Simulated scan of single mutants.
Amino acid sequence: MMKIGSRNIKTAISVFICISIFQLLNRPYPFYACIAAVICMKNNFQNSFVIGKNRMIGTTIGGTIGLALTLIFGNPSIVVGLGIVLVIYLCNLCKQSDSIVIACIVFIAIMTNLKGTPSYIYAVNRVIDTFIGIIVSIVVNVFPRIKDIRKQ
C-alpha cells in the first residue's frame, strides 16, 4: 500500500495553520497563503527556503509593479501586457529569473482581480497573504521528519 509521506502531512499542517491564522486575524481570504504554503513545501528546509525566497521576491516585484500601474493607468489590457514586459525585465535586471513566473502571476492577479477593492489594498493584501503562507511552510518544514503513515 502506498504510504502517506511526511511532506504530504507537512503540507496539510501548513494549510491548516494558514487557515487558522486567517481566522485568528479575521483576514477574509486564506487562498493565497494556502497556495504559497503548498508551493513552498519541499522535501527539506533548504529547498523550501529557496522556493520561498524566490516567491517572496517575485511577489514583491509583481505586487509593486501591479500596484504602481493600477494607480497610474488603471488596468486596461494594453497596460497589463506592457506590465508583463516590465515585470520580466525587472526580474532579469535584478538577476531574479527564478522569480519571474510568480512575479507575473501576482502582477496579473492585481491587474485583473480588483473586484471593487482599491488597488493598493488588494496589492498589499496579496503580498501579506503570500508571505504568511511562505513563512508557515518554511517554519513547518524545520520540524524533524514526521513519521510516514502506512496502512498495516
Score class of each variant (00 low, 15 high):
residue 29 Y to N: 15
residue 31 F to L: 14
residue 31 F to V: 12
residue 33 A to D: 04
residue 33 A to P: 06
residue 35 I to H: 08
residue 35 I to P: 04
residue 35 I to T: 08
residue 35 I to N: 10
residue 37 A to W: 05
residue 39 I to L: 14
residue 40 C to E: 08
residue 41 M to K: 00
residue 41 M to S: 09
residue 43 N to V: 04
residue 45 F to N: 02
residue 46 Q to C: 07
residue 46 Q to I: 13
residue 46 Q to S: 14
residue 47 N to F: 08
residue 52 G to C: 12
residue 52 G to A: 09
residue 53 K to G: 05
residue 60 T to F: 14
residue 61 I to P: 05
residue 61 I to E: 04
residue 62 G to W: 01
residue 63 G to S: 12
residue 64 T to Q: 00
residue 65 I to L: 06
residue 66 G to Y: 05
residue 67 L to M: 15
residue 71 L to S: 13
residue 72 I to D: 01
residue 72 I to C: 09
residue 73 F to G: 00
residue 73 F to I: 00
residue 76 P to Y: 08
residue 77 S to T: 12
residue 78 I to E: 05
residue 78 I to Q: 03
residue 84 I to P: 04
residue 85 V to I: 15
residue 87 V to Y: 05
residue 90 L to R: 02
residue 91 C to M: 07
residue 93 L to Q: 14
residue 95 K to A: 10
residue 97 S to T: 15
residue 98 D to H: 10
residue 99 S to K: 13
residue 101 V to T: 12
residue 101 V to E: 08
residue 101 V to H: 12
residue 102 I to D: 03
residue 105 I to R: 05
residue 105 I to L: 15
residue 107 F to P: 10
residue 108 I to L: 15
residue 110 I to A: 10
residue 110 I to W: 08
residue 111 M to L: 06
residue 113 N to P: 00
residue 115 K to N: 15
residue 115 K to H: 14
residue 116 G to C: 01
residue 118 P to Y: 07
residue 119 S to R: 00
residue 120 Y to G: 03
residue 124 V to Y: 11
